[in-house]
Nucleic acid binder design. Structure first.
Length: 769
DNA sequence: CTCGGCAGAATTTTT
DNA sequence: TTCTGCCGAG
């Protein structure tokens, strides 16, 4: 970047020193961070490794733009992926600038900013500005209707799958007419494309959009209305994008259109932390940045402020097994290299939970807070075992992720009532509550209303209103519907007169919804009533019902401000962006992590994404990371034996400790007793394609592998593990019983068990009969 | 219209 | 194994 021609500086030397030192908010930045903040003009890509102060750079950069008066708050576009990230940025900018940032109206998630723009120009994309944002559930229900109407076998072609296709098309920026033939054919023998088109039409009549539309329709808006686009291009003098590696094609196109106005776009991301490929994220966006934005400056942030040297070394070495990276190497100056990453093999998932539980208790007695620890699992089914164990031990825990507040049935019902009041054309909401609580309005009655609505192309509420004027319905349902409509009319009339929280309460009371749960004798009914109260309480911070509904559809996260000391349990995906002193990483087994499905469906790309997930997991740890793997795990109710994850092999031996577990009765297992690392003699032979192929095929002549290896070195070696077993030999396994050895591959045996079928097990877990 | 039984699936998740 | 969603009977 070239500086403007220097002008003579009249400031006295003494003061100039301060000028070079810069404003106070720049003072604590390291040189790279500072460059990332100060390179404000032109495209900039900041490759920010885990724990290198990414958010800090982003927020300071905004503060810098404001402080140097390059732009007003309203001229900066700053997009994030999650509401949490947006919120954090807001508060941190506030801290930097001092006081509240009055209006950074364009700091938010892609979706909320997309919605904001769409509402302003709704009529240009055939919508009214009151449009509803449908969530996945509504989306699927709508698609189901379309599939049924088209006489397609729902069993073979589930709505859920179509929703997936449509989502991915939207992620790629395709409107119905842009979907390639081959793609459209993937669903229901070619019906996919039509259904997408039909779906979009239905959305328009419902005055609704789905999440994908918030961007795709925005894209269409910009393309079809150059004046509107030009307006925003002019408005946004500086653009900042967080987590750029997670952007999909639609988001990329959207950004690129806006950036055509001026090139002051700064994208921050880390290709090594791209873990959302399965939902449309394109790592390519970040890899291609320099081509996309000519003259881009690339700045690497590699100085890590979070983790110990051991943890960084383990993570870096692991991720170096990926190809096609932009390449970063994290380092730290902190002298103390900390404890090595530990790897421990256990018998089964229960023992895994036990071992982790014991660790936690001993850390606790040493004064560590539970809040500083987390368990990061690959799949949520793994959580249960830990929860069970913690309940028995009396360890407080919290599960992060999982079913969210706004996804609960009672909340969705209540919201559906509000939606019908605020937006009469919202058929999906109407259908949801028309017979909740039970009013005796079933398919028969609804069918008639539906038919009329379809024939006249009007919303259900309108159709219902017309029908009650006729003799078409039997007296009873006719009166019920009439009464319901009267109630809705009354509530709509109160929109202006009653405060929205009171109106909400009134609606739930008068509709009989609250009563329905009061009468319910099931154990969770009181909790549901409590949730409804909470819902009303949370409405208070909004100005009106519309504002609240927008919040609910776009800001589906509820931050529980729970201050108590608890260990967190969550998936690796939801751990991104967080950090803990101690991180437990259970379930590092082939098939689970890397997940078999990722390998089957996405091959090498899938494996690399899994590896990045492992990298994300490790880099969450500040002081200590503890990996475990189990030899047996129950999946879908069946016991499966498993072998350690290849990621264990990919850790650098020098920074890892293998922990021995005593006590599976003489069955030498992983980590049992043998700590000695055998001198590496085969060196990189284990990572060659040939070896890997051999491993896959189980070729017997492949280098015999007798114990888990870390980075090609044998650890915990039970050198004799497989030595004695030969084909056809009868063996006994604690969990699977008796069986016959079918093949031998290093320490892995394939055994045909008499009862349990064919399994791959470790030689150390079987005995000769 | 409602309830019970059975088949089939069961990563990752934000908005 | 456990949950969900669909279909048939009452």
């Amino acid at each position: 970047m070239t500086d403007p021609a220097p002008t003579p500086d009249p400031t006295p030397i003494s003061a100039r020193a301060q000028v070079t030192a810069g404003p106070p908010y720049l003072a604590d930045l390291n040189p790279e961070q500072r460059r990332a903040v100060e390179t404000v003009d032109g495209p900039v890509l900041v490759l920010a490794g885990a724990g290198t102060g990414k958010t800090r750079v982003l927020t300071t950069r905004i503060a810098h733009i404001l402080a140097t008066r390059r732009a007003f708050p309203g001229q900066i576009l700053a997009v994030t992926f999650t509401n949490k990230a947006a919120r954090e940025m807001k508060t941190r900018i506030g801290d930097l600038v001092g006081g509240v940032v009055e209006g950074m109206p364009w700091l938010g998630t892609f979706h909320s900013i997309g919605a904001r723009i769409l509402r302003r120009h709704a009529e240009l994309v055939d919508l009214k500005s009151t449009f509803t944002v449908l969530d996945t559930d509504d989306q699927i229900r709508l698609l189901k209707q379309l599939i049924q109407a088209d006489d397609i076998d729902e069993k073979r072609w589930p709505a859920r799958q179509l929703a997936g296709f449509i989502d991915s098309w939207k992620n790629r920026g395709w409107t119905p007419d842009q979907v390639p033939k081959g793609e459209a054919f993937a669903f229901a023998n070619g019906k996919g494309g039509e259904l997408y088109d039909l779906y979009q039409q239905r959305l328009k009549t419902l005055n609704a959009v789905d999440f994908g539309d918030l961007l795709l329709e925005g894209l269409r808006l910009f393309r079809d209305n150059p004046d509107v686009l030009a307006d925003y291009q002019k408005r946004f003098r500086y653009m900042l994008v967080d987590e750029y590696q997670d952007t999909n094609v639609a988001q990329y196109l959207w950004l690129r259109l806006l950036a055509q106005g001026n090139p002051n776009i700064c994208c921050v991301g880390d290709d090594d932390q791209s873990i959302y490929g399965w939902r449309g994220a394109e790592v390519d966006n970040i890899l291609r940045f320099e081509q996309d934005f000519p003259g881009a400056a690339t700045i690497r942030l590699e100085r890590n402020y979070r983790s110990t040297a051991n943890i960084l070394a383990a993570a870096s070495h692991l991720i170096s097994h990926n190809e096609g990276r932009l390449g970063k190497t994290l380092f730290t100056d902190v002298g103390d290299e900390g404890a090595p990453v530990t790897v421990q093999g256990v018998w089964d998932s229960q023992e895994e939970a036990r071992v982790v539980g014991d660790d936690i208790e001993s850390l606790q007695t040493k004064g560590h807070a539970l809040n500083d620890m987390a368990i990061l699992v690959r799949a949520s089914f793994q959580m249960r075992e830990f929860e069970d164990r913690f309940v028995t031990l009396g360890v407080n825990y919290r599960v992060i992720g999982g079913p969210r507040f706004y996804e609960r049935a009672e909340i969705r019902d209540a919201l559906a009532y509000f939606r019908v009041v605020a937006q009469p054309a919202d058929d999906l909401a109407f259908e949801r509550i028309v017979n909740t609580p039970r009013r005796g309005l079933g398919d028969a009655t609804l069918g008639i209303v539906h038919a009329h609505a379809r024939a006249e192309r009007i919303p259900l509420t309108e159709a219902a209103a017309a029908i009650v004027q006729t003799e078409e319905l039997k007296p009873k349902p006719r009166k019920t519907i009439a009464d319901l409509l009267t109630m809705f009319d009354r509530w709509r009339g109160q929109l202006e007169t009653l405060p929205h929280t009171e109106l909400a309460e009134t609606i739930l009371e008068e509709s009989g919804y609250t009563e329905m749960w009061q009468r319910d004798r099931s154990p969770d009914a009181p909790g549901r009533l409590e949730n409804l109260k909470e819902l009303i309480r949370s409405m208070e911070e909004f100005e009106n019902l519309g504002g609240f509904l927008e919040h609910v559809s776009l800001v589906m996260d509820t931050d529980s401000d729970d201050a108590s000391d608890r260990i967190s349990i969550m998936t690796l995906h939801s751990a991104k962006g967080l950090e803990f002193d101690t991180v437990f990483l259970p379930g590092w087994e082939e098939g689970l992590f890397p997940h078999q499905r990722a390998l089957d469906e996405s091959g090498r790309a899938g494996l690399e994404e899994e590896r990045r997930l492992a990298y994300v997991g490790l880099t969450r740890a500040r002081k200590s990371a503890k990996i475990t793997f189990a030899s047996n795990r129950r999946i879908h109710g069946l016991w499966q034996s498993s072998i350690p994850s290849r990621f264990v092999d990919e850790l650098p031996a020098d920074h890892v400790d293998v922990i021995e577990t005593s006590g599976y009765g003489g069955l030498g297992g992983y980590g049992a007793s043998r700590f000695d690392r055998i001198e590496r003699t085969f060196d990189s032979a284990y990572s060659t394609p040939g070896w890997q192929r051999a491993q896959r095929r189980g070729e017997p002549q492949a280098t015999r592998r007798t114990a888990p290896m870390i980075d090609g070195e044998l650890v915990a070696s039970e050198t004799d593990d497989s030595a004695g077993y030969s084909l056809g030999e009868r063996v006994f396994h604690l969990k699977f019983g008796n069986g016959v050895v079918e093949s031998v591959d290093g320490n892995k045996l394939t055994i045909q068990f008499d009862k349990a079928g064919r399994k791959k097990v470790l030689a150390s877990f079987v005995e000769r009969v």
